[in-house]
Nucleic acid binder design. Structure first.
Lengths: 153, 153
DNA sequence: TATTGTTATACTCTATAACTATA
DNA sequence: TATAGTTATAGAGTATAACAATA
């Protein structure tokens, strides 16, 4: 009972590498990744499945390749991810009428519900993982990280 | 010649997941990791080799297990990492006289020089990767990330 | 000829379990 | 019996190349 409210945190890095932002960043990212994977486990999903579902929910029907390019998942891996999602009844592969090489990947009703539920779970997991930071600090962290990306194409 | 001074930056995430700090963090960490691996390539090293060398340089002779615990590298993996470092002539395995199951891993002279050179390379790579941030912003980022670790044991 | 999706393959990284030598 | 290091093996995750259907 003694560790009831104790949230697992990443253990500190040994001294020399703890001064490298790159190493600290990598470690924190690993920790967040594990928290997100745990949060998605009840649905039998990993973060890349969630990414595909979330992109589909926001950008309507897309081909596997189109999603893969957005999410940086190569097409061979996309096949397996979509296999998983199809097996779970969350997306459907429908041939594009205009170009029959393409699929129009579409969310099923169950897929739509799953996106909503998993998004809430992901947000909770992130809030938990980042709970040592205030709301303002979290926003600041997000902003600093976002500024490292290239200007959008 | 047109892209001469252009530094590769991570491409932005697609809209829904770009709002998740966890996903942004993971992506930035991947980018940093790649930059560090590229920086260490001239020495035939990866980040985990550098970690072991850096810990050894700061904490004197240690057993494989002791380093592994600090750096979160399991003992089977440590064997291969130390094999690599030994093959490169950067560390030596000397049996601990008091407990002959243990090694006293020690840096060779070449190992010491390599630590200094690679540390400089790693710092340069980090500075490059984080160059869109001011010095103050970098320090702030590091501080925010560091506060997510558990209090040291 | 080029492209989407598929399959098979390989390579890296990591984790597990069994083995040895020492304690 | 327990521990440090070793070895073999297996499981993810990811990348590459060849193939079929379609353009």
């Amino acid at each position: 009972m003694e560790n009831l409210e104790r949230i697992e945190r990443p253990t500190p890095l040994p001294e020399p590498v703890a001064r490298h932002t790159g190493f600290v960043l990598y470690k924190v990212a690993q920790f967040l990744q594990e928290a997100l994977d745990r949060a998605l486990e009840p649905w039998g999903l990993k973060t890349r499945h969630y990414t595909v579902l979330a992109v589909l929910a926001n950008r309507g029907p897309l081909s596997q390749q189109a999603i893969g390019q957005k999410a940086r998942i190569d097409r061979a891996t996309m096949v397996k991810v979509v296999d998983d999602l199809e097996r779970l009844g969350l997306v459907e592969r429908r041939r594009n009428a205009a170009d029959r090489r393409l699929y129009d990947l579409t969310l099923t009703d169950a897929g739509g519900e799953t996106v909503a539920a998993t998004e809430a779970a992901v947000l909770r997991a992130e809030a938990d993982a980042l709970s040592p930071l205030s709301e303002e600090q979290r926003a600041r962290l997000h902003e600093l990280l976002a500024s490292l990306f290239a200007p959008g194409p």
